[in-house]
């Protein structure tokens, strides 16, 4: 009988402490949730401000003014636009030469070319060099 009362009392103590802790924890978490929700709302508002600022700074009119001032870009001329089929240096034209190891020097002395040109040249063997066809005008490539 004595034990039962004691046990009951102890259970009561433990349970009430447990409930108190639980309640406390819940309140803490609610606080945290509220803070996070506040933070999210604030961040969302900040993102909106940044997006608006980005839109303001990337207005086409402003970009054009900046481009006119700092860049030497002009509208693309139709002659600067070509389809892939029209490219001269495609794989089939090169007959695998593009993947052959590059030769530092041409095998024959008469075939030597100035270094500035050699950079842009197709790796070639002897006289079977492919001609370079200018595909893009200056400023193209976008």
């Amino acid at each position: 009988m004595k034990h039962i009362s004691l046990i009951t009392f102890l259970i009561l103590l433990v349970v009430s402490y447990g409930f108190y802790q639980l309640q406390y924890e819940v309140e803490l978490r609610q606080d945290r949730v509220a803070k996070l929700e506040n933070q999210i709302a604030q961040d969302k508002a900040d993102i909106k401000v940044l997006e608006a600022e980005w839109a303001l700074l990337s207005r086409p009119k402003r970009l054009q003014q900046l481009s006119d001032r700092f860049l030497e870009l002009a509208p693309i001329d139709p002659s600067q636009i070509r389809s892939v089929d029209e490219l001269a240096m495609r794989e089939e034209h090169l007959e695998g030469a593009a993947f052959a190891p590059r030769q530092e020097k041409a095998p024959t002395g008469e075939d030597e070319t100035p270094p500035a040109l050699a950079v842009a040249e197709v790796p070639s063997v002897g006289a079977e060099r492919l001609p370079l066809v200018p595909v893009f005008n200056r400023g193209a490539g976008q």
Partner: peptide
């Protein structure tokens, strides 16, 4: 039963209602 209810209260919609009441004007947007 009481403890179930306490947990329930902690998780239920009342919590978000409470936090909404606390958060500021950012909730007006947009």
């Amino acid at each position: 039963g009481l403890s179930v209810r306490v947990v329930d209260l902690g998780l239920s919609a009342e919590a978000s209602a409470w936090s909404a009441a606390r958060s500021g004007a950012a909730d007006m947007l947009p």
